[in-house]
Amino acid sequence: MTDIETSTVSEEGYESTSQVGDYDLTIDATGEGGPDPNSVLVADYASCYLPAFRVGAQKEGHDDLGRVQIDAEAELDGDDDLTAISFDVYVEADVDDDTLSDVVARGEDICHVHSAVREGLEADITAHGDAF
């Protein structure tokens, strides 16, 4: 039994639309018709890490962080493969550096995308011709 199912379709070119539950997500490898896949991955990572950061803060006794913002940056190599991702996390609440360090580590432990972005996690791919 699978836990997550999506469907991604491209009629032509490099733009595709993914059906994720009740939502459509348009991604374009060229970045013209929507964000490119690497940008979506970085945004997804930040979107997963932010609530994990909040949960980590709660476990450290900080229930109200106020506004939290992540500015994410990524580096690409010559083949446009991601080589580095960095987050700058801005917290409205007055939290000391030692506590923030603990919250960052807890967030990494909680964030599912953080766990998934590692060497060795690859799709098991089977292609089917004459399918339509």
Rank of each mutant, 00 (worst) to 15 (best):
I4S: 15
T6V: 13
S7E: 01
V9M: 02
V9G: 05
S10T: 12
Y14E: 00
Y14W: 12
Q19R: 15
Q19T: 15
G21S: 10
G21Y: 02
D22A: 13
Y23A: 06
D24T: 11
I27A: 05
D28Y: 07
T30F: 04
T30M: 10
T30I: 02
T30Q: 12
E32D: 15
G34P: 15
P35L: 10
P35E: 00
D36H: 07
N38L: 03
V40N: 10
V40S: 04
L41M: 11
V42S: 01
A43G: 07
D44K: 06
Y45C: 06
Y45W: 00
Y45L: 11
C48L: 06
Y49G: 13
L50G: 06
L50W: 01
P51H: 05
P51D: 09
A52Y: 01
A52F: 05
R54N: 13
R54A: 11
V55I: 06
V55A: 11
Q58G: 07
Q58W: 01
G61D: 08
G61A: 09
H62E: 02
H62Y: 13
G66I: 10
V68Y: 04
V68T: 13
Q69V: 14
I70W: 05
I70M: 02
E73R: 09
A74H: 04
D77Y: 14
D81M: 04
D81Q: 09
L82G: 07
L82W: 07
L82T: 06
L82C: 12
T83M: 03
A84D: 15
S86D: 13
F87D: 07
D88Q: 09
V89F: 01
Y90F: 10
V91S: 08
V91A: 01
A93R: 14
A93T: 04
A93W: 13
A93F: 08
D94N: 10
V95C: 01
V95M: 01
V95A: 04
V95T: 02
D96F: 09
D96A: 05
D96H: 10
D97T: 06
D97M: 05
D98N: 07
S101W: 02
S101Q: 12
D102M: 03
V103I: 15
V104L: 08
A105S: 07
G107Q: 02
G107D: 00
G107N: 05
E108F: 08
E108T: 03
D109P: 14
D109F: 11
I110L: 12
C111V: 00
H112F: 12
H112V: 07
V113I: 10
S115Y: 03
S115N: 15
A116D: 05
V117C: 04
E119C: 05
E119H: 09
G120V: 08
G120C: 14
L121D: 07
E122C: 10
A123V: 08
D124G: 03
D124M: 06
I125A: 06
I125K: 04
I125N: 13
T126A: 11
A127C: 05
H128R: 02
H128V: 05
D130K: 08
